[in-house]
């Protein structure tokens, strides 16, 4: 059972790495959106430092959001989703495997490059640390919640911006605690409390999301 988990994950990662655009696009999107802000609000370092948590977190959130749409869509078009649904392995486990692979290939590069963008916005070291830690704990929640929405809209042809509308309201808590950790770090306050709350959110979504995603997929695939 767990060998299927790892085999599936390994192939999902392999596929993403072979199609460079699929993991580079969200990364580039993240970098470009963050670098648009100085043009929009002016290059004042104090202002940029003050709004940096919001800039970085919202840009990361949007980049992840655009990547989630591809989580199931290509598989639905090739008929591969049917094979997942027919597999004797628990569907939640297969979903978790796909979600984890997606996080490794689409979110991890973003997290790795985020200190560099933080540097461009003049973040001090302790805020950089808070940024990386909050992204590490928060982005899996975004992917887990997004997967439910992606599964629901997978069979809808003209879905447009439906997916962001469905799941963005659910992202509010992650956004609040993610940016909260950075704000606390900027005031030299401890951030462990924020990280603990984000860890709780992560555990909660780990408990519910893979199962609900599987259920949503069984419905979504027939539309």
């Amino acid at each position: 059972m767990f060998s299927a988990f790892f085999t599936l994950m390994q192939y999902e990662i392999k596929i993403t790495l072979r199609l460079a655009y699929s993991w580079l696009t969200p990364l580039l999107f993240f970098v470009i959106v963050v670098s648009l802000f100085p043009f929009a609000v002016g290059p004042d370092p104090i202002l940029l430092l003050k709004i940096a948590p919001g800039i970085l977190w919202v840009s990361a959130l949007l980049a992840i959001l655009i990547s989630i749409d591809h989580l199931f869509r290509d598989d639905a078009q090739t008929g591969y989703l049917d094979l997942l649904l027919l597999s004797p392995h628990p569907l939640s486990l297969l979903m978790l495997s796909k979600i984890f692979a997606h996080w490794l290939t689409h979110c991890l590069p973003l997290i790795i490059i985020s200190p560099l963008l933080g540097f461009l916005l003049h973040l001090p070291a302790n805020e950089e640390y808070a940024l990386v830690m909050s992204l590490l704990l928060g982005t899996p929640v975004l992917i887990l919640l997004g997967a439910i929405g992606a599964a629901l809209v997978v069979g809808i042809r003209s879905h447009g911006l439906l997916l962001p509308i469905l799941i963005m309201p659910l992202y509010v808590p992650v956004l609040i605690f993610g940016t909260g950790a950075l704000m606390a770090a900027s005031l030299n306050q401890p951030i462990n409390g924020y990280l603990a709350i984000m860890a709780v959110l992560l555990l909660l979504s780990l408990a519910f999301a893979p199962f609900l995603t599987g259920m949503a997929l069984r419905i979504g695939v027939n539309q």
């Binding site: 919640l145 439910i148 929405g149 629901l152 469905l166 309201p169 659910l170 519910f208 609900l212 259920m215 949503a216 419905i219 979504g220 539309q223």
Partner: peptide, 9 residues
């Protein structure tokens, strides 16, 4: 489908 999104909400 809408039941699932209502529950998640």
């Amino acid at each position: 489908a809408s039941s699932i999104i209502a529950l998640v909400g």
